[in-house]
Design a protein around this nucleic acid. Structure first.
Lengths: 240, 240
DNA sequence: CGTGCCAGGTGCCTT
DNA sequence: AAGGCACTTGGCACG
């Protein structure tokens, strides 16, 4: 058997099973590890699924995250979020990795027939990611330069709370009317219009509908959303 | 150097860089592989981010998926969806993995200083996942047994298209009124109420508001959503 | 391909 | 903990 750190992995015609596999996995528990194994997966919680025997990649992080990847796609076929607890147990001659989530109660069981590779990792980066081009970026751009929306606009508040949600940006126009702005960083759809409408009607209750305008600010808008927007007397302002 | 298949991985105090690393990676291109490396990551596309030098886990799938994981969390820190193309190039003495997406145009560059482990995988499962307990399950339950919502209810249509979206289930009640049902598999929030309202008002245009009811069907509802729902004259039916 | 919308969404932040 | 909401949301189905 090869050295345990940082890696345990036999060539492809070799594999570990039963006791030997369990012994390897014991050393991996609580660490960051990548496992390549022939396994069966059962998930039960908010939903429920079952994967038959197959070769899969399993990633376990010390924070409780568990990811089970198959051949295709971005999303893991099954997973468990951070905060879960990982246990190693036995079902007959097979080692079983069981990940448990408390609330909501969810369990994943990975029954391991053959372990083909186990990579135990000692150190992994953890970094703050400063993402650019977000919706918040778009809002602050307008806060600094309200005329991007329209001349004479004056910002009153951002992240303005109401009983039906939070208004991205609240302003007053040249004629003294309240202006509710909802921002989208990408194509705005029906949901965005509905959101804007909720806020506008909320503000209209105190100030009167004629004293409140609603503007959807986005780089683009779907045609159905545009139609719905117009029908509700709301406005669209293109901004990238 | 160890055998290339299915695994290339030095013990932790060993690593590969420059030409040697490039040579290894060349063999991995187009295959399913897991890479543990000291790297820098640049992403630019719909958004933009930059990760400084750090030890990370990188997964590349033959379908073009690229995942870059750090120590914590379920979601990859950076990624590229299926359909992207992966290239291996050189930047000074460093090998660079570049993943390119066409539409929208997005690029990830992974500059590799040290390769600590490379696991090349020959075969991975690909399975149809039949997920249970979905929203569709809830709808078909009601289709089979409409009295779960209310006695005397008659189903007219499911997935009923309108200009403002698709109604989950359309029915008629004992008094001949139209009933628009919007289903949620989990806690219903403000967005769900807005959705239901869109559909109800759409149907009301043809039949008159007094001839149309709207019912939000979900296992639970937030208090703010409940308040908003009541205000709009819509109904809530708890169903698990 | 655009558009709507569900998802075991996840993650972040505020009450 | 509950709730609102953005997200490089991803993924799918349908016009």
């Amino acid at each position: 058997m090869l050295a345990l750190e940082p890696l345990i992995a036999p060539p492809e015609y070799e594999f570990y099973e039963g006791d030997e596999a369990e012994e390897m996995l014991e050393k991996a528990l609580g660490r960051f590890f990548v496992l390549y194994a022939l396994c069966r997966v059962e998930y039960e919680g908010r939903a429920k699924s079952e994967l038959d025997w197959g070769l899969r990649i399993l990633i376990s992080k010390p924070d409780g995250t568990l990811l089970i990847h198959e051949r295709d796609k971005h999303k893991p076929r099954n997973w468990q979020p951070p905060g879960c607890k990982l246990y190693l147990l036995r079902k007959g001659r097979w080692p079983v990795l069981m990940s448990v989530r408390r609330r909501p109660h969810e369990v994943i069981r990975v029954v391991l027939e053959k372990v083909l590779a186990l990579l135990i990792i000692n150190q992994v980066a953890r970094e703050e990611l400063a993402l650019e081009k977000t919706e918040a970026d778009l809002v602050s751009k307008v806060v600094r330069e309200p005329s991007l929306i329209e001349e004479g606009l004056e910002v009153i508040d951002v992240e303005h709370p109401t009983p039906v949600g939070t208004i991205d940006l609240l302003a007053r126009d040249g004629k003294g009317r309240l202006v509710v702005c909802e921002f989208k960083r990408s194509v705005a759809g029906l949901d965005a219009v509905s959101q804007l409408r909720r806020y506008v009607e909320q503000m209209a209750e105190a100030h009167g509908r004629e004293k409140v305008r609603g503007i959807l600010v986005a780089p683009a808008i779907t045609s159905t959303a545009m139609r719905y927007l117009a029908k509700l007397g709301l406005e669209y302002k293109r901004l990238t």
